[in-house]
């Protein structure tokens, strides 16, 4: 009985994990997740914290290090 449980869970895991990975990958293809890498890599930036803006500093650091804007960053390749 114990052996059966072990085999069932191990085989079940393979099917479950493998199946889930295949389904997830198929979904992301259909959904267009792999279509535009340049745009995708920029999805974490927004108008308030755009590409080129540094967003972290030590609390006692001078303000000038906290904000750095350079338009050259925007053309950095994806």
């Amino acid at each position: 009985m114990a052996d059966f449980i072990v085999y069932a869970t191990v085989l079940g895991s393979i099917v479950f994990f493998g199946g889930a990975a295949i389904l997830a990958m198929a979904w992301s293809f259909r959904n267009g997740q792999f279509e535009n890498f340049h745009k995708s890599s920029r999805s974490i930036f927004d108008a308030d914290e755009p590409v080129g803006r540094v967003t972290d500093r030590f609390p006692d650091a001078p303000r000038s290090h906290g904000t750095k804007n350079s338009s050259s960053e925007a053309s950095h390749r994806s």
Binding site: M25, F37, S41, E49, D56, K68, S78
Partner: peptide, 23 residues
Amino acid sequence: PKVIGRPVYSYYLSIIGFWSLAL
């Protein structure tokens, strides 16, 4: 990327990295 304000070097590679880790 968020702290220095620069997108990841290669987003394509990052996707490869995730799926090969999962595999």
